[in-house]
């Protein structure tokens, strides 16, 4: 059972007010518990939580490089195994460290089958370096390296389907979660750390600074992502999708218009074709995962 009162991520960290990643860390650690060793990749979370000597972590924690967290975790796990120790190994890495620069190490570690849980806090761009696009950046999002302009609507490619890639490695447990649903997130992390083998939890963690919204909106926006079908919460046990979060469908526009990164789709002129293209992606998600709750008409 998740102990909700457990605080393993301390006050005094330097995340922006309303930071989705900080909340993700705090909630994930409640799910993981005290008997955990955290391996953190380079990124926002690493930086805002550990300027020497002010660590925010109350569990053993290690940061080595940007791309190698899963290899470091492989070594930690092998060492614990050899010493017959019982700590759980949890990786915390951003989407850049996961979708892009860490892919080789991730593939190797999942293929080898180490016993760890990989938590990707997904804020859909390189936030630590100033909001550059990553393989997790959604279609049409404007970032500093995929800026919207006279001949561009921003990021040209849809988000990489990382959970499927991980599942293809034979991971016993893969899940997506959102900070908008804290209990679900904590339970998924708890399940992952208690499942033997390499598990993966990808957590949608909106970034007020990078996406362009006020900090108090972080959860509301995370929730809209789920309700519009642009983020799907599900579990995959041994490669089979289950427990998909069902929602009453909202148009993607409601989500897009809340964030500056999509502002060019509405101003100076409304880009109907682009919004329709994004709606089509959401529609495909609704169909693929069967998540729509149909309300009975009065």
């Amino acid at each position: 059972m998740v102990d909700k009162s457990l605080e393993l991520f301390e006050c005094g960290h330097r995340a922006c007010g309303g930071c989705g990643a900080a909340l993700a860390a705090r909630l994930a650690m409640k799910g993981a518990g005290t008997n955990t060793i955290v391996v953190n990749s380079t990124g926002c979370m690493e930086v805002f939580s550990t300027p020497y000597p002010e660590t925010a972590w109350k569990v053993p924690w290690i940061h080595s490089l940007f791309e190698n967290a899963s290899a470091v975790a492989s070594g930690v796990e092998a060492s614990l195994k050899k010493q017959r120790r019982g700590e759980k190994v949890v990786i915390m890495a951003g989407d850049g460290a996961t979708f892009d620069i860490g892919m080789i190490c991730i593939s190797g570690a999942f293929e080898r089958g180490h016993d760890f849980t990989y938590i990707c806090y997904d804020n859909e761009a390189y936030m630590n370096t100033g909001i550059q696009r990553s393989g997790a950046t959604p279609y049409d999002a404007s970032t500093t390296t995929s800026p919207a302009g006279k001949c561009s609507f921003g990021n040209k490619r849809p988000k990489k389907d990382m959970p499927q890639i991980i599942a293809a490695h034979g991971a016993p447990y893969v899940a997506t979660a959102s900070i908008a649903y804290p209990a679900d997130l904590m339970q998924k992390v708890e399940r992952a750390v208690n499942t033997k083998g390499p598990c993966y939890v990808q957590v949608h963690a909106p970034c007020c600074t990078g996406w362009g919204f006020e900090g108090e909106q972080t959860l509301a926006i995370a929730k809209l992502a789920v309700e519009t079908g642009l983020w799907i919460n599900y579990e995959m046990v041994d490669g089979k999708v289950s427990k998909v979060k069902k929602v009453v469908k909202k148009p993607v526009e409601e989500y897009l218009k809340t964030q500056k990164r999509f502002r060019h789709l509405f101003k100076p002129a409304r880009q109907d074709a682009e919004i329709a293209a994004i709606q089509a992606m959401a529609d495909r998600n609704f169909e693929k995962y069967g998540i729509e709750i149909k309300l009975k008409k009065e």
Binding site: E10, C11, G12, S49, E54, T55
Partner: peptide, 19 residues
Amino acid sequence: MALAVGCRARPGKSRDNKT
């Protein structure tokens, strides 16, 4: 305070940063 070997720290110090 002497520097910790390898840039390490024990918990609690983040509370020095009164956000």
